[in-house]
């Protein structure tokens, strides 16, 4: 799994690529948290378009970043999850965290 961080005005986007499981989530968490703490953005977008596999570790990653961001009043949103990732996000009741498809962030 690779994570690329793009920074914008008041937001950061973490572009995740590869398979997201318990093993790879740990590394992704470290990279994203380092930037979250450095920039304290209002919005943190997790771009899931390159995530080819995800289990419930993805939910832990989303909720964990929300916890970190909420310390400085920020929030987390998920962008472009695959149909399968979306299935798990819905199972966790987090569909409200998914950005609408036409969203221009």
């Amino acid at each position: 799994m690779t994570v690329e961080i793009l920074t914008g005005e008041n937001y950061i986007t973490a572009v995740l690529k590869g398979e997201l499981d318990h093993c790879t989530a740990a590394g992704a968490r470290e990279i994203i948290d380092a930037r979250l703490e450095k920039y304290t953005p209002r919005l943190c977008i997790l771009d899931f378009s390159g995530v080819s596999f995800m289990d419930s570790s993805g939910i832990g990653l989303i909720l964990g970043r929300q916890r970190v961001a909420s310390v400085f009043g920020g929030s987390v949103r998920v962008k472009n999850p695959s149909r399968y990732a979306e299935k798990i996000i819905k199972l966790a009741g987090l569909e409200k965290m998914i950005l609408p498809e036409n969203c221009k962030v």
Binding site: H22, A25, R29, D55, S56, S57, I59, G60, L61, L63, G64, I88, L91, A92
Partner: peptide, 14 residues
């Protein structure tokens, strides 16, 4: 602390 969401069995079941 390991950011487990508590959804492992729920995913298996679903």
């Amino acid at each position: 602390e390991e950011e487990r969401a508590g959804l492992g069995f729920a995913v298996m079941e679903a």
